[in-house]
């Protein structure tokens, strides 16, 4: 099949390969995630840890995701590869989706693998940990899309990293709140279906229209 040289799937694996060749860069947000997660139980009084653990973990995840997004488009923008993608035959939204998916696998999946360890640090009951994991699984796609949008808009700028955090945090607040509502409900033995469904709906919406919005933002950001 000749699609101007590559398929979306090949581009996805290409992105993954690039990310895994920059192991050090990929490891940094994960290291940040572990480091900050270990600070909270140290800083909190012992009795407060189980109470505050879900909130601490959500905020840590939010910040780690934002940290990881700093170089989502920057390198491609700097070395001109992004222009190539924009003029490629393949639709830009699909390329963006493939890139974001690779980003999720390389940066965010490892955080989920570390969650049981952190649950241990926070002495979290397995039930709470599983609901928390679910809330993060449903919440991170939306966080990724919101952050990706900001990363696309700030791609050509010098202070891109800081601006990205500044833009994403206020927009991500509802996701954080619903994620924590979900855990809070579960901890109190109530049904958390409403918050879960809201997060799932947001994930579907951002997964569906996110790549298109980010592609449009890239065209604006790199104008």
């Amino acid at each position: 099949m000749n699609n101007g040289g590559f398929t979306i799937r090949r581009y996805f694996f290409f992105c993954l390969r690039v990310l895994f060749r920059q192991r050090r860069d990929v490891a940094l947000p994960l290291f940040f995630f572990l480091l900050v997660s270990s600070l909270f139980p140290l800083a909190f009084a012992n009795h407060a840890v189980p109470l505050l653990a879900p909130a601490a973990l959500w905020i840590t995840t939010l910040l780690s995701v934002l940290l990881s997004l700093g170089n989502l488009f920057r390198e491609d923008a700097e070395d001109g590869f992004m222009e190539q993608l924009m003029t490629a035959k393949q639709p830009l939204p699909l390329l963006v989706a493939a890139k974001m998916l690779a980003h999720w696998v390389a940066y965010i999946l490892p955080m989920f693998i570390c969650l049981p360890l952190i649950g241990l640090w926070y002495a979290m009951p397995p039930d709470t940990l599983s609901v928390l994991t679910l809330s993060l699984l449903l919440g991170t796609p939306t966080l990724l899309v919101l952050g990706g949008l900001a990363a696309a808009l700030a791609a050509g700028l010098k202070q891109g990293g800081t601006l990205l955090i500044l833009i994403t945090l206020p927009l991500a607040t509802p996701i954080l709140l619903f994620g924590l509502t979900m855990v809070d409900m579960a901890q109190n033995g109530l049904s958390y279906a409403a918050a879960r469904d809201f997060l799932a709906a947001m994930a579907v919406v951002s997964g569906g229209i996110g790549p298109m919005v980010i592609a449009a933002s890239l065209r604006i950001g790199l104008d």
Binding site: L153, A154, L163, I167, L169, P170, V213, S217, I220
Partner: peptide, 26 residues
């Protein structure tokens, strides 16, 4: 905070037309 984010983008981008479209997106 959203207003601040929009203002931050405005001050970060020297080209006014581009700044406006970035602000529009946010």
């Amino acid at each position: 905070f959203i207003y601040f984010a929009i203002l931050a983008m405005k001050s970060a981008i020297p080209d006014r037309r581009k700044a406006a479209r970035v602000m529009a997106m946010i």
